[in-house]
């Protein structure tokens, strides 16, 4: 029972990690788009939106990697 439960937790954590990586890198692409803006407001908008995506993606990555590590240690 525990093994099945752990396997499921591991699967969820791996999926979250993959999603996190995607959202994080997509956020970086949006931040990179700052270089192509013309006004300060546009720059800040890209920066804010990109940072939000990086925070969501980064948070998912960190949390899931922590879970994966703890499950593999068991």
């Amino acid at each position: 029972m525990d093994t099945i439960e752990n396997r499921e937790k591991l699967k969820t954590a791996q999926i979250n990690n993959a999603l996190g990586v995607f959202i994080f890198f997509f956020g970086l692409v949006v931040i990179f788009a700052m270089l192509f803006t013309e006004t300060f407001v546009q720059q800040m908008t890209d920066l804010a939106a990109g940072l939000v995506l990086c925070l969501i993606g980064g948070g998912m990555m960190l949390k899931s990697r922590k879970t994966i590590k703890s499950l593999k240690l068991k």
């Binding site: 788009a33 700052m34 803006t37 407001v41 908008t45 939106a49």
Partner: peptide, 9 residues
């Protein structure tokens, strides 16, 4: 309304 980059998004 949106700046380049976010339009693509």
């Amino acid at each position: 309304t949106l700046p380049p980059g976010l339009i693509g998004l």
